[in-house]
């Protein structure tokens, strides 16, 4: 369970989050929607532990872990996974080597045995197949020369292999055509279960046709201003965010 309480954060002098309250029980997928500049990406970065944000109040507890007190790699080991809005290119780093290193780091932290190259490849090929992705994705350098859709699919591949307990998808739908969107949604839906929860951050309702959320929250001006069921997303699509500001 993720419990965010009165979370406030800023970049430099700029207050971005102004007391976010959010509860995501295990096994549930929650959508966070909101206009540009509402603080959606800041929320995901603060939860994943990116530098440059100053938390000025409140906290975030995930399965008993005080997330904000942990370095990013410890959050990953605890089961937090951020699917980046703009995945970074790593020239000179092979994708298979990268994902295996990550998987083994996480497995080590969880006191699970590490996977050798052969065992990893078997696992990775199976994941690729279930996500309708090409094998060559593993041979290329991480995200180098990937199309926008391929980068997002690579995020979903990493998620499938790292098996997080909490996935934060930061506008994973941006820049995706409908086929890529379905692959990404299938990847998330395949993780659904009692021990998987997700925070799906999106600007548009479209993604939620494919990943049906248990709850929808509206983030505006750094606060959750409205919460509801999937119907809230449809209402937002029809009427926009106007009138919802705090």
């Amino acid at each position: 369970m993720l419990e965010i309480k009165n979370l406030s954060a800023r970049i430099g002098d700029k207050e971005i989050l102004r007391g976010v309250d959010l509860l995501v029980p295990d096994g549930e997928i929650h959508a966070v929607m909101g206009p540009n500049g509402a603080g959606k990406s800041t929320l995901s970065y603060v939860l994943a532990g990116r530098d440059g944000y100053e938390v000025t109040g409140g906290g975030a507890i995930y399965n008993g872990h005080d997330l904000l007190a942990m370095p990013p790699e410890a959050r990953a080991a605890a089961g937090v996974f951020l699917a980046f809005q703009y995945p970074v290119e790593l020239p000179g780093v092979g994708n298979a080597n990268f994902i295996r290193t990550a998987l083994n780091a996480v497995r080590r932290a969880r006191a699970e045995p590490e996977l050798d190259a052969v065992a990893f490849l078997k696992l990775a090929r199976a994941a690729l197949k279930s996500l309708s992705m090409q094998d060559d994705m593993l041979k290329r350098n991480v995200n180098v020369g990937f199309s926008g859709g391929e980068k997002k699919r690579n995020e979903v591949l990493q998620m499938a292999l790292l098996q997080p307990g909490l996935a934060i998808l930061d506008e994973t739908d941006s820049g995706l055509d409908i086929d890529a969107l379905k692959i990404v949604a299938d990847g998330v839906n395949a993780q659904r279960g009692l021990k998987f929860s997700a925070l799906v951050i999106t600007h548009y309702q479209r993604l939620l046709d494919y990943i049906v959320p248990d709850a929808v929250h509206v983030l505006a001006e750094g606060r959750i201003v409205k919460s509801g069921g999937p119907e809230l997303a449809l209402a937002l699509e029809a009427h926009g965010y106007a009138g919802l500001a705090a």
Binding site: A48, G49, R50, E73, F81, A102, A105
Partner: peptide, 9 residues
């Protein structure tokens, strides 16, 4: 940060 967010020290 990308590498660390994946659990790599």
């Amino acid at each position: 940060f990308y590498l660390r967010s994946r659990g790599i020290a």
